[in-house]
Simulated scan of single mutants.
Amino acid sequence: MHHVEMVMGTAITIDILDAESDMTGAVEDVVAWFHEVDRRFSTYRRDSEVCRIDRGELAPARASQDMRRVLDACEQLRASTGGYFDVYATGRLDPSGYVKGWSVEVAAQRLSAAGAVNYCVNAGGDIRLRGVGPDGQGWRIGITHPWERHKVAWVVSGTDLAIATSGTYERGLHVIDPLRGEPADQLCSVTVCGRELATTDAYATAAMAMGAHGIDWLGTLSGYESAVITKDREAYRSAGFPVVEPDPPSPPEAVGDDVL
């Protein structure tokens, strides 16, 4: 089953390979969930909870349970990243660096609860994989090359994996270094792989904000692997980064093309 939904400012792709099961209802539930997240967490909809909190019209303590959980998690991440993951980095409340990955993680949990075993949910480059891909082995995900858009910089593979990428060339210098109050421009792209997408997504954003220091910082994270390309076209990857070597002759099943 293949479904594409335009929501949350991006194309969200849901691929389920469990042919013996009817996942129509589960996909409809997940799509409704993404629209609910957009209504509550959008930084563009004036009536969203995020915008109402930002304008001082809604106290965080009186917001929805999901909003309180997200803001609590973001505050914990601010502390654990030395302030580099900051929902107020742009001067206004913007938890997007956590929310997209979190929403995909919740969607994956809902698909699993409905009986899905082999699937890929891709929200513009924030990807959650479970089970096996079309070839009966791990899903293969291509990470778009920063300068040669018809090529991939890395191809990663996994059967239970969260992948998040943060970068500069799709949306420009949109990640702010909150400690300097200026756009982060030392790294061109950061891809982080883990087992849970919300934190994986936030770590990719934090490393991008850190600049060159982010490369060493990523190496201190237990349970996460990463690959980085700098603006000087130098590439680094951790020893456990799940890159496919040698690159497979056939194209990957999906491409993480939001910002990398």
Rank of each mutant, 00 (worst) to 15 (best):
T43S: 12
R55K: 10
Y84P: 10
L77A: 10
Q76G: 14
L77C: 11
Q65A: 15
A63N: 04
R55E: 05
R55L: 03
S48H: 13
S48I: 10
I53L: 06
Y44L: 03
S42C: 03
R46D: 08
R46N: 06
Y88D: 09
P60W: 08
D54S: 11
D72A: 15
D86L: 05
L71Q: 04
Q65M: 13
R92L: 07
S48K: 14
R68N: 02
M67Q: 09
Y88H: 15
R45G: 02
A59L: 13
Y88W: 14
D47S: 13
Q76K: 14
R55D: 05
Q65N: 11
Y88A: 09
V70M: 10
R62A: 15
R68G: 00
V50H: 05
G56R: 11
M67A: 12
R62W: 03
I53N: 01
G83E: 02
R62E: 12
I53P: 02
R62Q: 14
D72V: 10
R78F: 15
L77T: 07
V50L: 02
R55S: 07
S42L: 01
V50E: 02
R52Q: 05
D94L: 02
V70T: 08
I53F: 01
D94P: 02
G83P: 00
R68F: 04
T90H: 14
D54L: 00
D94E: 07
T43V: 15
R55C: 00
A73F: 11
S80P: 05
G83I: 01
A61D: 12
S64H: 09
G83F: 01
P60T: 10
D72K: 12
A63C: 00
E49R: 05
D66N: 13
